[in-house]
């Protein structure tokens, strides 16, 4: 697919990194402030969608990115399952056991495994949405 004009490309160059960083901020501070894995994941996916829309790419590269992003999604959900099962294996017979120390509420490093779950869910949502978008783009390209 072809990209957009020079103006859009230049603005994307400046803004892209900031949007991605904002998504990471929303994900990592999900247990302290509004946000979390779902919202942050969609913002991260939005940063990549912005990049693809502004610059365009040739189809072989897009296909490879789609494979990678799909694989990343599978890895993330697999990690979620492993994290859930670790609590089960540690002796207490509870799936999704919060086995890490809780710490004091309000600190960045606190709340046990909730930040880790936030990050994994964020990766999963971002990869899933980006894969959906790429599937539509590749479908359009292949038809020509």
């Amino acid at each position: 697919m072809t990209g957009m004009t020079n103006i859009v490309k230049t603005v994307t160059r400046i803004i892209g990194g900031v949007v991605f960083l904002f998504g990471l901020y929303i994900v990592t501070h999900g247990h302290l402030s509004p946000g979390g894995g779902f919202a942050g994941g969609t913002i991260i996916a939005g940063a990549f969608i912005l990049l693809v829309l502004a610059y365009g790419d040739n189809i072989m590269h897009l296909r490879r990115i789609k494979e990678e992003s799909s694989a990343l999604e599978n890895i993330a959900i697999f990690c979620i399952l492993i994290m859930a099962a670790v609590g089960f294996l540690l002796g207490t017979k509870v799936f999704f056991n919060n086995f890490l120390p809780i710490g004091t509420a309000g600190q960045l490093i606190s709340a046990g495994i909730i930040p880790l779950f936030n990050i994994l869910i964020g990766i999963e949502v971002a990869a899933a949405l980006f894969t959906i978008f790429l599937a539509f783009v590749i479908f359009k390209e292949e038809e020509k």
């Binding site: 230049t10 994307t12 160059r13 400046i14 892209g16 990194g17 991605f20 960083l21 990471l24 990049l51």
Partner: peptide
């Protein structure tokens, strides 16, 4: 992480 991914595009 952000700079590693988007650094190549920075003006």
């Amino acid at each position: 992480i952000s700079a590693a991914i988007f650094g190549g595009y920075y003006p």
